[in-house]
Design a protein around this nucleic acid. Sequence first.
DNA 1: CTTGACCGGGG
DNA 2: GTGTACGGTCAAG
Length: 793
Amino acid sequence: MRKTARVVDADYRIDGDKPVVRLFCESSEGSFVAVDRDIRPYFYALGDDLEEIKKEISGGFEEEDEELPVIDTEIVERTDLNQEIEALKVYTTVPPKIPKLRRQVAQLKEVSDTREFDIPFYKRYLIDNEITPARTLELELSDDEEYDYALEKVRGLVEEELEHSTAAFDLEVIDDEIIMAAFRTDTEEKLFTTADIELGFVETLESEEQLLKRFKEYIKDEDFEIITGYNTDEYDFKRLRERFEKYNLTLDIGRLDERMKFDRRGRFSSARVKGRMHLDLYPFISHVMAPGLESETLDLDSVAEELLGRKKDDVSFEQMKDWWRNQQNLEEFAKYALKDADLAYELAEEIVPQIMELSRITGLIPFDASRLTYGQLTENYLLREAFNRDMISPNRPFRDERQKRRRQGAYSGGFVYSPEPGLYDEIALLDFKSLYPTVMVSHNISPDTLDVEGCEESFELEEFDYEFCQDEQGFFPELIESLIEERTEIKNKLENIENGGKKHKSLDSRQRALKILANSFYGYLGYEGARWYSREAAEATTYLGREYIQDAVKHSEEEGFEVVYGDTDSVFLRKQDLKNEIEGFLENVNAELPSFMELELEGYFKRGFFTSTDSGEGAKKKYALLGEDGSMKITGFEQVRRDWSPIAKETQEKVLRKVLENEPEAAAEIVKETIEELNDGKVDVEKLKIYTTLTKEPEEYGSTAPHVEAVKKARKRGEEIKPETTVAYVITRGGGTISSRAELVKYADSYDAEYYIDNQIIPVSLRALKVFGYTEDQLKGKGKQSGLGRFGG
DNA sequence: CTTGACCGGGG
DNA sequence: GTGTACGGTCAAG
């Protein structure tokens, strides 16, 4: 029979001595599991005499009483970087035998190398059978004795818009007990709790055990396709597992009554719910989206504020504990819990379509696509594209190789133009569209075009003793070019589609996913853990990037522009009649660039402020811009970091705003007033708290740190503070070191004005005001200001 | 300037 | 599970 369906999850089991791949599918008639039992795991062996290797290994091996059979071999032709080679494909019975068998085979003297022995089996299967998750496929199915169907054949179908039933959830845990579980789904808001709360969305359960049972029942009954939340891997599901265990309950919320398990991946573990897509939003935000976000902290509230424009309203954990212990304000507590599920749901509406698109492009199951880092995303895409081209993949470097790569040290990165510190009016920001990817395409920079033997036309760089062959397009440039071209096509289509509609959203998600991937190749080349690592290619790319931006700077100066600043792929320019001049300038520059590259106008700014380093030179990567709409964009200043007190951050923001309004005197006045308030003892301790996370038991810390000392003292007072708690402390008055005077906010009966002035207010303020001739003493009102107005007007 | 410890998100 | 994977910042050396 035939069915139209999407594969949303995949894994494998061992049935006897045969692997069975399970594909979890969704169709318009519901979900089902299709299995493939006709598969043989394999890896490659290389050497000069493959026939001899074949003979040597045909009897199989044994290791610690485990049979490692070789059930078949096959000599195949493959491309290895820029060489055509023959490889021996070695098959065995089940996947876990692959690494062991490979070790045995690698030891033979005839074997020069072994390849593709460390690719998780479900990934290998999806690649080899050209199954792309999250795409609509036509499946040819037959009956299976154990699962819904056996898979016979797969055929791809056209793209269609995806809709997935989604539930976002959030737990509230107090004193290790799960007291609330909030859900926001496509159709309703729901809160399970053990408290008596009279609100429409609340369902009260009589015990935590009942709550857990209801949690599971709800997910299974509603049969959600996507379960999401914020940091659910590392928090919510860990708590759930502990509490389910406590009551001897099974945490089986997937589609096959199998217990949820944690997949280990490096320093994280991921909660795998078989058959549903558990997509934790936090890893995707931190791995993939963070570089493009302004917010420096990635807590749910900040991220939601930036991406959704939702106002922050965070309740402190202390506050919640008090509410719960005194059984007060429970309605408010419930609303707070629901708000977090709500934010996660709304974030998911923005982010999940991008994850699904990345999954479609890279061929990773959504579970993986949502959690992998940039490098891993790129590598999985490369593995699939390499397979499609009959290429054999390089091995992942082992520890010693990684160390070697690391020891080579850094190569030069982007060019940064040193700004003259001060204020500038009316500036234009120009930048190269995807500088590194387009450089790689324009000059055919790729691991497989490096130093090709017998190459006819090479691109050489005087500085380096290697070259890139231009005879045939390389692997990376080919992939980048097609990704960028597809993206351009989609962007053109988008211009003719009304914003806000479903079609628009799905295309927009796709173009973003394509951008993410196209931009990942350069970083991947220089990533020490990469299979296709090429320091030469990475180094040549940044070298050329520097050439292009420096050319642009030179060109601007020749055409009478004042270059204010530039970094890697951007330049800030100034000139009389700026807006009229820019257009022609861009045309001239672009006419000289390779056709795939483009310098474009990012925008105009009313004013820009560039600060100085301690030694008085122009600081790089630290500036503030005032947009034409009055918005302020701050780069590199402390203002957004959480290890600074609120008062320091607020003061810096106010100071920068005044500076951008060309009122440095008013800015200095703000600092003086703040200092006065601090000295008068008028400042609320809430504005003085500094957050740090206690990561281990206080005794285990080698060095003294303020937050550790504060916790030690609080514990002596009987406070229970466990590792992994984020504490807020204040530096109080008295003698001794700073650490010895640190107290948790609730125990702070005074504050050390001098500390906050010298270590918080003065440093952040001087960062902006030193340029205008202010010194520490002047801001403290102790001396005269010199050189005022140097940059005024 | 280089090296090693620490930290993130969640309650 | 064809396992064992980050990247940036800051204080100390």
